[in-house]
Design a protein around this nucleic acid. Structure first.
Lengths: 112, 112
DNA sequence: TATATTTACTTCAACAGATGAAGTACTCTA
DNA sequence: TAGAGTACTTCATCTGTTGAAGTAAATATA
């Protein structure tokens, strides 16, 4: 089985998280499960990678956090939710452009 | 202008170098110029990145070095040439497979 | 012939992001 | 009431990239 190495996906962890936050605010555990589902378990983001991405992106102004005691139905434990900012949206857009370029570049070196 | 960040291309610097060495042995300065040409200057590998990749890959057994005083025409200065090994070829092949998977995964998070 | 540019590297310290290990604590289910 | 699931946090370590700086031979230009 081929596995994705961290050096390859490194530049896109933040982008994945932001793409999920584009739809609605969410929190760590939920985002982690979504990434697993969306990629059909081809990629599982490590907890430490995820939470350190939150810290970094909040510092960079790409996301904002707020604490919610319970979910809408009054279930679950306290969570830290994150919401994407305007800067986050812009960053996401620029990453999408960068991806097209990266794909072009890398594929010149990949056997077809 | 969109620029490729190091975190994105990180996992593919070694692959690019190996793909050039698949054709014939080469050396730093020449490989660097080839990458620039092949990518139409969309990606320029930094010297330190390139030379540290050589050290790492030689240690990993993906490439072997030999010194040539001059080129075929008797021009130029002393160079350290690198030749890809069987392990290097295998590594290259596995990276190509990994790339297909990575592309699939990343594109699930990129706006189309 | 003197100077500038190109070729061909090397060394080193600093940095950022990913990671494993370990721990905390609450909630839900059987 | 025990165990699984939820929801994180802290910390030390590792790897690859990078900037800055330096070395030195070969070639082009004036």
């Amino acid at each position: 089985m081929v596995e994705i190495s961290s050096d390859v996906i490194r530049g896109y962890n933040d982008t994945m998280i932001l793409s999920i936050l584009l739809k609605e605010p969410s929190y760590g555990y939920e985002i982690s499960k979504q990434i697993k589902t969306i990629t059909e378990e081809k990629y599982i983001m490590k907890e430490t990678t995820l939470y350190s991405a939150f810290t970094r992106m909040e510092k960079n102004g790409f996301i904002e956090s707020f604490v919610a005691e319970k979910d809408m139905e009054g279930n679950g434990k306290k969570r830290t939710y994150y919401r994407i900012t305007e800067e986050g949206r812009n960053y996401y857009e620029s990453k999408c452009e960068e991806w097209e370029l990266t794909k072009d570049v890398v594929e010149k070196f990949i056997r077809s």
